[in-house]
Design a protein around this nucleic acid. Structure first.
Length: 198
DNA sequence: CGATAGATATCT
DNA sequence: GATATCTATCGA
């Protein structure tokens, strides 16, 4: 059962927290791939220098962030990698949640084939890795998670005591905003991309 | 471990 | 023309 639009219309920080434990699904003609979301980061364009849409900067690339929540924001980075964000918030508010780590639960052979590795942990413990494993490319830019073959469904419930809240990764260019505690991950899960000592 | 090469769409 | 919400690989 796909999550409904309402879920995505909330603030990006809340959605980032609540996405932990939910199941990310991509159905393609090659097969279905699923994984439990174990690591996320929130980006709020209105106030956050780390966001592509900082100060409501609106370009062809960030356009999708300005619409309703529940759409996929996929972009190409460092000349060779894709990352996927889930757009959140109401129309006009550019926000997103970066998916940084998932735990594969279905279609593992397909993921291994796409990633060219047999190492289970190495399949999806990073934002560009999980995009490759899930078969996400520029093609998925702007897809509606409420009405397409790319979506999120209910999963397991994660208690607050099992959630690590830390600084976000690789945003040193973002000045003081790099210290915001907007990264959420499931404690001691091996598919979390980078461990941060507490 | 830490350092660095890798390669290009996107914005200035 | 500079840079990026990163990853793989190499050397110690």
């Amino acid at each position: 059962m796909k999550l409904k639009r309402d879920f995505y219309l909330q603030d990006c920080v809340k959605v980032a927290r609540d996405l932990l434990g939910k199941v990310f699904v991509h159905e393609t003609k090659e097969g279905i791939a699923k994984g439990i979301i174990v690591e996320t980061e929130a980006y709020n364009g209105a106030i956050d220098k780390a966001s592509h849409s900082y100060k409501y900067k609106r370009t062809k690339r960030t356009e999708i962030q300005f619409g309703l929540g529940g759409y996929a924001y996929v972009y190409f980075i460092y000349g060779m990698h894709f990352n996927i964000n889930i757009v959140t918030g109401i129309e006009g508010e550019p926000q997103g949640v970066l998916i940084r780590g998932i735990q594969p639960t279905y279609g593992i052979d397909l993921m291994k084939e796409r990633r060219k590795t047999d190492n289970l942990i190495n399949l999806t413990n990073g934002p560009a890795k999980l995009c490759q494993a899930m078969g996400i490319t520029k093609e998925q830019y702007g897809m509606d998670l409420c009405n397409s073959n790319l979506y999120i469904e209910e999963g397991i419930s994660i208690e607050d005591k099992d959630v690590d809240i830390t600084k976000r990764i690789n945003i040193d260019y973002a000045a003081e905003d790099k210290d915001r505690l907007w990264r959420f991950s499931i404690k001691d899960n091996p598919f979390v991309s980078i461990k941060v000592k507490s």
